[in-house]
Design a protein around this nucleic acid. Structure first.
Lengths: 307, 307
DNA sequence: TTGTATGCGTTATCAA
DNA sequence: TTGATAACGCATACAA
């Protein structure tokens, strides 16, 4: 059973394929008699017609495909896989609402190939957790020619949109909630070293008070220096490790960068980020796709912090 | 800057587009002089040519796209989003190794539209967490005509492959590890009621000893009836709730159906499932795609349990 | 109000 | 060993 095409509908309805196309696409510049319109629509439905996106893409030079490229952690933790689920799912949902379909790909190894992006003629791309090195190697030699939104990285290139949690606001808020400025910071080893630097800088803490997690032993050793002190942990899954090894002894505030505050015990001070903030992000990308000259107000979008 | 096509290469190399196509696709039935071959290959590289998959798909009637459709939990828990990450990522990786790209979509609402599958001409589909109702409404009226693999559901239709954790083996093993047969079972409300029934049946436990999680209060009440008894929990995220509300008091064995045993404390008895088992699954789908008559040995694939 | 014809970039058949 | 050329299914400029 071959798939129904416009041609089949045209034949069945006794009209031309152009007419069918006009009707199916609801082309405003054409005036179609109500009679033929309902007839064609009915037949299309009877034959279970769906448009062939390969053909349409070929013609329109637009695929309606958006890529989400997830860069695997260079230094994997047990919870590495969990970190970007919420973001991924939210982006999928929002893009879906706008009629796009998502191609999901993990980027692994040192020199990834971005051929997929061009082979599939993606309309736009989200990069999650990208590091400068792996990304730069390729981005340099071919400007994508499509909107690229970089989430959770600090890629030094003005053509990319950057989306980040509002670290500055978070640090301030954390101090308020803790009742005093935190004295230490535990964070993950970021894929993107530059981002890690900026976070450290923003925290205003001395390097000796900042711990990049590697394993439990190291974490525990670090925390022992700060018993009964107030501290800050970036990422709730990492915070879970802290809570697990330390119990309730320390009073910490957690920046829930993975949008999953639920996984933490109730007593912990949590700072969350608005998943809703991805809506304007996706809208901006859509604008860029619809109209290449779309002026996006801001290349930096910060996810706002809530408690 | 328009994208390079075969035509461009042909022109630059002074040969026909047919020749270029032969060379790029390494067509065995054609004999090409080494001279032109290297010339064309070189030019292709210089021009950064990549094949246009829309065009190729249109011609070949194969897209190289595999869909992963994730059915959202009908009764969402805080950790609902986390449950299928590992599976999703593993499938992506395995399909990627075979040259496929993944379209990821969440299925929400009561009467989902599967048009995407046909519009995009997917070569195959994975369904995660599907429930009979939402699925049946549509699957009935159009046989996909492509391999459909159902993960974590018990869809009553012989044309679908089913992939499930080895519950029978798990229950047996859990008994061994606990040193005695478990006296109660805590599980999640499955999307697929039929699957839930079968699991309950396999456990051999009376309905009064089986709890379907709804909220902490209900869970706690249930567990109070089994203090100091040995029990079974299906899913590690749910188990985390159990551990959190109960502490170390109970000795439970956990079936880590989300492939994330790491998130549980060390002292808990854990049963894991082989992520490697998805490899033969993906291979089977690939076989079905390459050759529609591919005989798949088994429509049931059970993920083997380890400790 | 409707139809004809062209091209999007490939692959593959047939001819040279 | 190579080259014309016809599809694949759709959208649209231009005719009628």
């Amino acid at each position: 059973m071959k798939k129904t095409t416009i041609k089949d509908i045209a034949k069945a309805a006794g009209v031309s394929i152009a007419t069918v196309s006009y009707i199916l696409n609801d082309v405003k510049t054409q005036s179609i008699s109500d009679e033929t319109r309902v007839k064609v629509l009915k037949i299309a439905q009877q034959l279970h017609y769906v448009t062939n996106r390969s053909a349409r893409s070929l013609k329109l030079q637009k695929t309606g495909l958006i890529g989400i490229l997830l860069f695997r952690d260079l230094a994997p933790q047990p919870w590495s896989d969990l970190k970007y689920v919420k973001t991924l799912y939210t982006l999928e949902r929002l893009c879906g609402e706008l009629g796009y379909h998502i191609i999901f790909m993990q980027v692994d190894g040192d020199s990834p190939s971005y051929d997929m992006i061009r082979e599939r003629n993606l309309d736009g791309v989200f990069l999650l957790n990208a590091d400068q090195e792996r990304f730069a190697t390729v981005s340099r030699y071919f400007g994508f020619g499509i909107p690229v939104f970089v989430i959770d990285s600090w890629i030094e290139d003005p053509i990319f949109h950057k989306i980040l949690p509002d670290y500055a606001g978070s640090f301030k808020r954390a101090g308020t909630l803790l009742g005093a400025a935190p004295e230490y910071l535990v964070m993950q080893p970021c894929n993107d070293a530059e981002l890690a630097n900026r976070i450290a800088l923003l925290s205003g803490l001395d390097e000796s008070c900042i711990h990049r997690y590697e394993d439990r032993a190291g974490l525990d050793e670090f925390l022992n220096r700060f018993t009964d002190r107030k501290g800050l942990v970036i990422n709730e899954f990492l915070a879970n490790e802290v809570v697990r090894t330390r119990g309730d002894r320390d009073s910490i505030a957690v920046l829930c960068t993975s949008h999953s505050p639920d996984i933490l015990p109730d007593h912990v001070v949590k700072l969350s980020y608005e998943l809703n903030d991805y809506k304007p992000v996706v809208d901006t990308m859509d604008g860029n796709i619809q109209d290449a000259d779309y002026s996006s107000h801001n290349k930096f979008i910060y996810l706002s912090v809530t408690s």
